[in-house]
Write a protein that binds this DNA or RNA. Structure first.
Length: 290
DNA sequence: GACCAGGTATTGC
DNA sequence: GCAATACATGGT
């Protein structure tokens, strides 16, 4: 580090960018491969590149406890990337609590170990709303493909040939037919409805964020094409509602197999979302023993 | 060619 | 209310 390097906790800011050290429960390869985010690609070992909040960004984790974010100022890190990567959250504490709640449960224990490096991202609200509409009855490669097409067609171009996620206004202006022509299928009308509602104020994303989780879900479900699962995903990954508990086909399987007496997600409060993500990721990658 | 994919809206009973 | 069924598309 140079003399001008400024240290704040275990985070160091230089002209080159940000270095965070002393990390625990943080693994880029888990974070970006656990199905919460569709715009990042692994460009090499422990190095991921993508776009979020209208910025092209690269994250590099040269060792388990160290994260490098090149080209980022202290202000940008504090405002965007620290919350985005959930670095302002004590995951050790969350994991301790969760372990206590599920003491000795074999599946939860295994899932927590397998998914230890997962962090729940705090993504852009509109991007998560739109992306999880696209995700319904769809597979991950095609979800990514459709989102890429939406960005390239209606997103703001960025340096490096990438594109920002399109604004609700730009998608509303594009119209149903143009969205359909990007091979979005039956979801075109849903994307258009969501974009229109946000653009004209019938859906106020700031109000969703300010509301409690249950009311927030109701507000999102007014959009045609948003049901309980899509709403829960958006709330969890985009609105900071850590109590949201998305149940998809994988979760249904996991809960039926391993929690035959029922699973009281509501009783977990703000731990529910993380519990869901551990179980989902484990089930998704261990379908045989799950 | 069926069948499936991080579901939801619509229909039929 | 609740169980089918259609929905666009692309990959096995």
């Amino acid at each position: 580090m140079t003399d001008s390097a400024k240290k704040a906790g275990n985070t160091v800011f230089t002209a080159d960018g940000v270095t965070v050290t002393g990390l625990e429960c943080f693994e880029l390869d888990r974070i970006f491969d656990c199905g919460q985010c569709f715009r990042f690609e692994r460009i090499r070992e422990h190095c991921w590149e993508g776009v979020a909040f209208g910025r092209a960004i690269r994250f590099h984790q040269p060792s388990p406890d160290t994260l490098l974010i090149p080209g980022v100022s202290e202000e940008e890190y504090r405002k965007i990337w620290r919350p985005y990567l959930s670095l302002d959250v004590d995951y050790n504490a969350k994991r301790r609590e969760l372990s206590a709640r599920f003491a000795g449960h074999p599946t939860m224990t295994a899932a927590m170990e397998f998914g230890k490096g997962i962090r729940i991202l705090r993504q852009d609200p509109w991007e998560t709303v739109c992306s999880f509409i696209v995700s319904q009855n769809n597979n991950i490669p095609r979800i990514k493909k459709i989102i890429r097409a939406l960005c390239e067609a209606y997103g703001e171009p960025l340096d490096g040939g990438q594109y920002a996620f399109p604004t609700p206004q730009s998608l509303a202006a594009a119209g149903r037919e143009a969205i359909f022509n990007l091979r979005t299928g039956f979801r075109a009308k849903y994307i258009y409805d969501a974009a229109s509602r946000v653009a004209d104020g019938r859906l106020n994303l700031a109000a969703v964020e300010a509301a409690d989780a249950s009311r927030a879900a109701e507000m999102l479900c007014e959009v045609s094409g948003i049901g309980p699962k899509v709403a829960a995903c958006a709330l969890l990954f985009g609105f900071g509602k850590t109590e949201a508990f998305p149940v998809d086909v994988w979760m249904k399987r996991s809960l039926e197999r391993h929690f035959p007496d029922g699973f009281d997600a509501a009783a977990l409060g703000p731990l529910a979302g993380l519990a869901q993500q551990y179980l989902f990721y484990y089930e998704r990658y261990h379908p045989e023993n799950g």
